[in-house]
Nucleic acid binder design. Structure first.
Length: 565
RNA sequence: CGGGGUGUGGCUUAGCCCGGUUAGAGCGCUUGGUUUGGGACCAAGAAGUCGGAGGUUCGAAUCCUCUCACCCCGACCA
């Protein structure tokens, strides 16, 4: 492709509303333009990258037996009502105003519908169905360029199995395919155990790229490889110990002491004997949640235990339900509450907690003796530096971008949509499903986040829009032009994709800057100094390494470059 | 949805607090010329409903009210 005829609008200035590197560079390199919040037009160069990524994904999903569909984005709201997901998605789901239709945010329902109508026998199973298609989600707050958009492209696949062992197999096949995809895309990623959230099901894992721009938080162990989303991460943090003495409850006057830090300083004790009480409401039932000291409650973990609609109580509710304000609430004397306690405090005694009377705490609480406990659960948010649950190495806590998520869904959707088959004993059974997503734009953005420098993008070979960026340095020198033109023809004949900067009246510096910004793996530079010696220069974008070679060696050089990894 | 911020030629922006010639600059663009190995130079140009509506005023980019859009933090997030 001749740059003189291409629409690749590069920009020198950093666009003012882009804050992360991938967003800035995708705009500057002319890959895309923003149309609205979370809505982007992909321009030819950006779409070329997108197609490369989609093909890479397609190859690997085909390789595990995936069959590609093209499902509609529009779908009748009725089937979303059947699975209860109109409510589950809430405002995230885009509704069409003048028809009872919605824009699909994912496609379990549609796959389930096809399966319900056409899968009849265990002999029809297993199946892996997938598509690469646009999804619509009314994100309350799109951000970070393409990382969270209202419209985006997803590869979503769905496995249909007759048995739970079959599901495990389909799931593992996807996990392996995903590793290959992200590895081929040149990404450094890790896999974490994750929460299934609104998708439901029995298990899920996320494929993550560490990045300060990421919206997810993960605990990672460098030694043994343990990694988990903070929503489910655990640690070997020390538990409370029982003190030997059987001490009597005592009232402690604590004027104006509200936070755990204030209480610790006021009483001059270790914060591990302080129990913080939080109140959450689930379906109208108040729950008292107790945490040790300054341990942070993880709401996802809480919701997994008591239900997804749990919300923290309002200040007025607190006063009404407990008789005290936040900071003075505790487990003794409450009526109508369920009391759930973090495992770290399991069976602890000698604790100080609120008395449900402002400015008073109670000491020497023994959870076994004094409190009617409805259960001990892991509610803590793991903090950096805590011991790994597997090997006790200190955990790192990092931000990460979620590239892909794989779910064992089970029979939730089959049950709701009546997707059943006859097994070998003639028994009607629900199809067991899995679902597996990859964000296509996120692969692109993560690639840039991980691989760029001050001058621009550094594409991985597998997703670079062009193999070679050919630069004509002296457009005013006839034999240099002739050489560049002939090199261009030769590269095309040898099936390389070439972006040829043939622009005249553009200074060499300008062309070099554009080439670095666009980031093709190899720059072939045709300049007068070398051409007179029948030589040309090749620059590797990633290392910056330059090679002056005979023109005749060009094709073998490039082939060698692309074949070695 | 809560908090903060920003809207001025295609891009980056000055001016706004403290109202007053013709809204200024750099980049980009057009024309002519000179240049050509790291975002060239000279000259001449084109391009603006100052996000929108209403108001205050002799006079509004500037002050007030409403509104829209976008960005950031948080909440939320397959």
């Amino acid at each position: 492709m001749r740059l003189s005829k291409s629409f690749i609008p590069t920009q020198k200035e950093v666009p003012s509303d882009a804050t992360i590197p991938s967003h800035q560079l995708m705009l500057r390199a002319g890959l895309m333009r923003q149309l609205g919040a979370g809505i982007f037009s992909f321009l030819p160069l950006g779409y070329k990258v997108m197609k490369k990524v989609m093909n890479l994904v397609r190859e690997e999903i085909d390789a595990i037996g995936g069959q590609e569909f093209h499902l509609p984005a529009l779908s009748p709201i009725e089937i979303w009502e059947k699975t209860g997901r109109v409510e589950a998605f809430g405002d995230i789901l885009f509704h069409i105003k003048n028809r009872p239709l919605v824009l699909a945010p994912t496609h379990e329902e549609i796959i389930g519908w096809v399966a319900a109508n056409h899968i009849e026998s265990y002999k029809d199973l297993p199946q892996i169905w997938y598509q690469i298609q646009t999804k619509f989600r009314n994100e309350p707050r799109p951000r970070s360029g393409v990382l969270r958009g209202r419209q985006f492209v997803m590869k979503d696949s769905y496995s249909l199995d007759a048995t739970w062992e079959g599901l495990d197999k389909s799931y593992d096949l996807h996990a392996e395919a995903y590793k290959k995809i992200f590895t081929r895309a040149g990404l450094k990623f890790f896999i974490v155990g994750a929460s299934s959230g609104a998708m439901g099901g029995t298990g899920s894992q996320e494929f993550m790229v560490e990045s300060p721009s990421g919206e997810d938080t993960c605990a990672v162990c460098e030694r043994c490889g343990y990694a988990a989303n903070i929503e489910v991460a655990a640690s070997n943090v020390e538990k409370a110990v029982r003190v030997p003495a059987n001490l009597q409850l005592k009232e402690i006057h604590t004027p104006n002491v509200k936070t755990i830090d204030e209480l610790r300083d006021y009483l001059k004790v270790d914060e591990s004997i302080l129990a913080k009480s939080l109140v959450y409401i689930q379906n109208g039932i108040p729950h008292l949640i107790m945490m040790m000291g300054n341990d942070q409650l993880n709401e996802t973990k809480l919701q997994t235990v008591i239900g997804a609609n749990a919300r923290s109580a309002h200040p007025e509710e607190l006063a009404e339900l407990t008789g005290a304000d936040a900071g003075s609430i505790g487990p003794l004397g409450l009526k109508g509450f369920k009391i759930l306690i973090d495992k770290r405090l399991e069976n602890a005694n000698g604790l100080v907690s609120g008395m449900n009377k402002n400015d008073y705490h109670i000491g020497n609480i023994d959870l076994k003796r004094d409190v009617q406990v409805d259960g001990y659960y892991d509610f803590r948010t793991v903090a950096a530096g805590e011991p790994c649950p597997q090997c006790n190495e200190q955990l790192r806590v990092v931000n990460a971008i979620e590239l892909g998520h794989i779910f064992k869904l089970g029979t939730k959707y089959a049950d709701a949509l009546d997707a059943k088959f006859l097994d070998e004993h003639g028994e009607m059974k629900p199809i067991i499903m899995g679902s597996y997503g990859i964000g296509i734009e996120r692969i692109i953005a993560c690639g840039i986040e991980q691989s760029h420098d001050a001058n621009g993008i550094i594409w991985n070979k597998s997703v670079a829009p062009y193999d070679v960026h050919l630069i004509l340095v002296n457009s005013n020198v006839e034999n240099v032009v002739r050489t560049a033109e002939s090199v261009y023809e030769t590269l095309i004949q040898n099936k390389f994709e070439v972006l040829y900067d043939d622009r005249s009246n553009v200074s060499p510096g300008f062309k070099f800057k554009d080439a670095d910004l666009l980031g093709m793996p190899l720059h072939v530079i045709i300049g007068e100094k070398n051409v007179v010696k029948n030589k040309i220069e090749i620059k590797e974008r990633k290392s910056g390494q330059r090679h002056i070679i005979e023109i005749e060696q060009l094709i073998s050089f490039i082939k060698n470059f692309y074949e070695n990894n």
